[in-house]
């Protein structure tokens, strides 16, 4: 895998992770998209160095590995569908709660209720 690809994939996943830890759903969705892009780059990089298009034309030139490209294509389609679903869900969450934020865990709220006792 070339260094440029590796660094880019790492940067994408890092940025995605940062966005994933935010409170706003829209940022989480974008973060997931970035992580998926990073993963796709890793897949693409796993195919070895770039070469001629994978078409056997009798010239005998080295061709690039077609499998990772097919895998990336499949992964992109899947990610596309799921991201659309997630956006719809985020929108619905916004309609229901009229905020874009993510609340605390059910269990956390319960425990906070025990501990707070009305003080906070």
């Amino acid at each position: 895998m070339s260094v440029v690809l590796a660094v880019t994939a790492g940067a994408l996943v890092a940025a995605g992770t940062y966005l994933l830890l935010q409170r706003l759903l829209t940022r989480i969705v974008i973060g997931l998209g970035l992580i998926a892009h990073g993963a796709n780059l890793v897949l693409l990089g796993s195919g070895g160095p770039p070469a001629a298009p994978p078409v056997i034309d009798g010239s005998g030139a080295p061709i690039s590995d077609p499998l990772p490209q097919a895998l990336v294509l499949t992964a992109i389609v899947i990610t596309f569908g799921v991201t659309a679903f997630l956006l719809a869900l985020a929108y619905r969450s916004y309609l229901l709660t009229s905020s874009d934020g993510v609340e605390d865990d059910v269990e956390d709220r319960r425990i906070a209720g025990f501990a707070g006792g009305g003080s906070t």
């Binding site: 895998m1 996943v13 995605g16 994933l20 997931l32 992580i35 998926a36 990073g38 993963a39 796709n40 890793v42 897949l43 693409l44 990089g45 796993s46 195919g47 499998l67 990772p68 895998l71 992964a75 899947i78 799921v82 997630l86």
Partner: peptide, 16 residues
């Protein structure tokens, strides 16, 4: 979705 992303990265590394 996060698990799926990690799964993809794992497949990429294993293929490499």
């Amino acid at each position: 979705l996060v698990a799926s992303g990690l799964f993809l990265i794992g497949i990429g590394l294993a293929y490499a």
